[in-house]
Amino acid sequence: MRDKILFVIGAAAILLLARDINAIIGLPEERNQGIIFKIIFFHVPMAITALTCSLVAFFASIAFLITKNFKFDAVAVAVTEVGLAFLAGNLITGSIWGRVAWGIWWTWDARLTSALVCWLLYAGYLMLRRAIEEPTQRATFAAVFSIFAFIDVPIVVFSIKWWRTQHPAPVFWGGGSMPKDWFALWAWNVLAMMLIAIVFTAVRLRQEEFQREIDSLRREAHAL
């Protein structure tokens, strides 16, 4: 049953993505930036997906600390890994855009820098997990760190914004504008990304459950 649902979501995500890509190819070039403008249809949805992942990881971590149910720990780690992948996608697309628009691969602009800091924060989470052997302690310590990291995200974003900003004003919420039908297309692509993230998370979640079962069987074998 779970497999079938997952399959349907995955198929929907791929179809939606294919449709979106097709539509995006058909769009005219933007007046100032040219074709590279179209990267925004992927760049921003990836950031939104990554941010959603960190939010889910935060609540899953709190839920683990309260209930000590390992399902929440599995959700936290799965969603963090997927979020990291999307954040990496966001950084890479941002970098490509920067190369074309500004002529440089990397600039220490506020958004890029804070995305990188967040990426490092959650990479630290995964490294901490790898270093701890005992599953209960691993889950507890990782959950504590995840809470610390999530609280840091807004502080990082604001402090780096004050430090210096050189990013183009965001297209949404920041004075930029986009034709209405383009926005609808963009919103559909956010949905496509979210669906992909859900499928990835579910697959990773199952892997984590198997891993836990294997660990427990291994301990059982050692005890014999």
Partner: peptide, 9 residues
């Protein structure tokens, strides 16, 4: 008492 899924007690 559990270590992961393995019951130690």
């Amino acid at each position: 008492k559990f270590y992961g899924d393995y019951p130690a007690l």
